[in-house]
Design a protein around this nucleic acid. Structure first.
Lengths: 196, 196
DNA sequence: TCCTAACCGTAATTGAAAATACGCTATTTA
DNA sequence: TAAATAGCGTATTTTCAATTACGGTTAGGA
């Protein structure tokens, strides 16, 4: 199979896997179901990804790429406040969306912790440098560890325990207004702290 | 079986289940393993708890009782700050401990969301009133919704995304010093916000 | 005391999904 | 073009844990 075709095929398989994952949840998905829905064979899935674990690693990779792309679209327009006002809802929306939640559930079920690490590496560890960079632009007087701590504080205020509550099924999918509201509150409190 | 004996027997079974859960993790536990370790029979487990789900509900109930008891020991000594300084580490230590994390993993794997609701009802929903009460004592001028919001803010700052990171295996078990440090930071930021 | 129901220990059943195998077709490559 | 390899669709094997069944034993009430 030519590399470019293989590329598209993999993208399609991963896409189908996400569809099933969102529709049936983590316990409702099986390798066979993915294979059938993608009109691929079980054998191919195993040849390409090794095992179920490998398939999920591929899903994470795709998710990471998506997050990076969306955040890249957030351009520096006004000051720090305006920038974070854009940044927050985009990030929060993705972190609480069906895909990220499904992946977090998978990571919770993964005894090895590999999936969790992959998720973190692709999530927080990719976003934080971007955030530190933004903060650094407007707070040149701060040291690196201080910027780091500021970024952590922002994450805490923005995400809080919403993700764990989504993962455990306590919290339903938030709509745009709720995402916006949560982001605003987080930003308010964040600014209040760093300006005091 | 006499009620008091039955009571002790159930407590012992739940205790054994927790042991296995902490040692082997959520995917390593099975009804049969619990039965054998507790020197009980499979049949009895099913008669008493209905199914695996029911057993976990019982585990949650036990966990809740424990949390309540520990928090009840936190007495009002000094002002709000001193009180929260005691309250925080105790609560955080339990929420990030092996048992709570294992239960949250179970809830993540539970498609019905029942376990998650039970956890929330026994966790946050039990602790929040206590917290609102404490806050109300020192901020009599606040309305109920305001106290409510303050409690939520405190939760956010205290727990943040530590629980989801523990559940996904990104974060190891924290030691006393780390718990203490996190609680202190949360308290600092909390006071900074409500006093601004 | 005697009888019934609960309990123990273990075996058997069931069900589901991961992982593998295989015959067939298509595609690559020598 | 012809052999070899990859991929498809389906069937099969494996594995593992939930759940049920059962003979033997014990406790508790009539």
């Amino acid at each position: 199979m030519k590399p470019e075709i293989r590329e598209k095929r993999e993208a399609q398989i991963v896409g189908v896997a996400y569809e099933i994952l969102e529709r049936k949840g983590f316990d409702g998905i099986s390798m066979l179901a993915v294979a059938k829905a993608a009109k691929a064979s079980n054998e191919t899935l195993y040849r390409w990804y090794g095992d179920k674990h490998g398939l999920f690693i591929a899903l994470v990779a795709r998710n990471v790429a998506e997050v990076e792309q969306h955040l890249a679209n957030v351009k520096a327009k006004g000051g720090l406040e305006a920038l974070l006002a854009e940044f927050g809802p985009v990030l929060l929306g993705m972190l609480l969306g069906p895909r990220a939640i499904a992946l977090n559930r998978a990571a919770a079920a993964d005894g090895t912790g590999e999936l969790g690490k992959a998720l973190a590496t692709g999530g927080r560890d990719v976003v934080r440098p971007r955030l530190v960079e933004i903060l650094g632009t407007y707070h040149a007087e701060k040291t690196m560890p201080e910027l780091f701590a500021m970024a952590e504080l922002y994450f805490t205020l923005l995400i809080g325990d919403l993700q764990i509550r989504r993962v455990t099924g306590v919290l339903p999918l938030l709509n745009k207004e709720e995402i916006q509201s949560q982001s605003n509150t987080a930003l308010e409190n964040f600014l209040r702290i760093i300006r005091s």
